[in-house]
Design a protein around this nucleic acid. Structure first.
Lengths: 211, 211
DNA sequence: GTCTATATATTGATAGAC
DNA sequence: GTCTATCAATATATAGAC
């Protein structure tokens, strides 16, 4: 049988094995970064031997590249859903909520992204300067048109978007710090609802016309 | 002469050499993380051989621990300066400005901290749950008393502080993304002034009573 | 498809000459 | 104090039996 490594999986079994590996790799890469992660760790987390893992993926870098691609696609979804035809305030509110839900439900993906950014985005710089910039330019234009129409208060749409990214992703990337500071009393699962309430309030105060 | 490694530097020369090493190490650690950094890279950046570097520091970990200690101390300074006796709005405004200046002037320290957080703060968890939590509890108490006195609008002081951290540090940690999205036109040095204007506006809108 | 054994390269750290 | 040479430990990836 032809080796599936470096090739698209053809059977259900092959696909499932690759998913197990990718899931284990996401655990390890998101916690230790690319260099800090070892194939041994990933293989153990995936419940298989190192050579067996390398039967499904030809190299450590291939696994990482695959994870990064999948993650970038997932990461841009909330911004893509941002609807120019919708109500400005509720669109922005929904965007903030979706981004915070992403931080809650996909913290590993968030950390993988953060790791890539901290290193200067060696693998993702093209996506940032290409697809992401185009998408943000588009949505920033939408926000600006809302401001011109007086539907929301004037502000900088780019830094507004940056601030939404920063505040929401903070709850995934700096989770240890958040929980350490909040302590056992407020650092439990409820912290995301508290954050949602706070952030909605923070951003809406500055956007809803007439205070 | 007694080996200075593992010991406090006694001469001016020794101190200067250690500073050169620490500066080079900060470059490398902040960009590649602990595991991703190599002593070879640090030695080359410091302009000396690997064994020579290890004459001044006994191990890679010792250098990293030293950098982390110095950084944590620097990082808490703006929060320590936060003055309970000052005017609430101008104190918060100053805090935001100082934190953003830190991101601008010490981006490597910010990234070193972010790297540590992403990995679950293996070396800093005690500081987070101890000194940092105590400091934040104290300042959150100050903010709460201002709210009780009606000097600023009611909100969650902890998530307010998290949001200030997140938004300001974003400009250091995600600098590649910020510049890629803003493009050459707005991604130059002026981006920090734009961010300062935006963030001041964002946080003040929700805090100044009567909108 | 999965395993053991291993080749090859990198890296943290030390030995010892000068 | 600084260097060259090198040890020992890891880690990526492959060979080849089953």
């Amino acid at each position: 049988m032809a080796p599936p490594s470096k090739v698209r999986p053809r059977t259900r079994i092959q696909r499932e094995k690759q998913d197990v590996i990718l899931n284990a790799a996401l655990d390890v890469f998101s916690l230790h970064g690319f260099r800090g992660a070892t194939i041994d760790q990933i293989a153990e987390a995936a419940g298989m031997s190192k050579p067996n893992l390398l039967y499904y993926f030809s190299s450590k870098e291939e696994i990482h590249r695959r994870l990064l691609e999948d993650m970038l696609d997932l990461w841009l979804d909330p911004l893509r859903e941002f609807d120019a035809a919708g109500d400005p305030v509720s669109e922005l509110r929904s965007y903030i909520r979706r981004k915070l839900e992403m931080a809650r439900d996909f913290p590993r993906e968030s950390r993988l992204f953060a790791n890539e950014m901290l290193q200067g985005a060696p693998h993702a710089i093209d996506v940032l300067a290409g697809e992401l910039k185009a998408l943000v330019d588009d949505k920033a234009g939408v926000i600006e048109s809302w401001m011109r129409e007086g539907k929301i208060t004037r502000t900088d749409p780019y830094h507004l978007i940056f601030s939404i990214w920063a505040t929401t992703q903070h709850y995934a990337d700096f989770d240890v710090q958040v929980r350490a500071v909040l302590g056992p009393a407020r650092g439990g699962e409820g912290r995301f609802e508290d954050a949602a309430r706070y952030l909605e309030n923070l951003f809406m105060h500055g956007l809803v016309p007439k205070g």
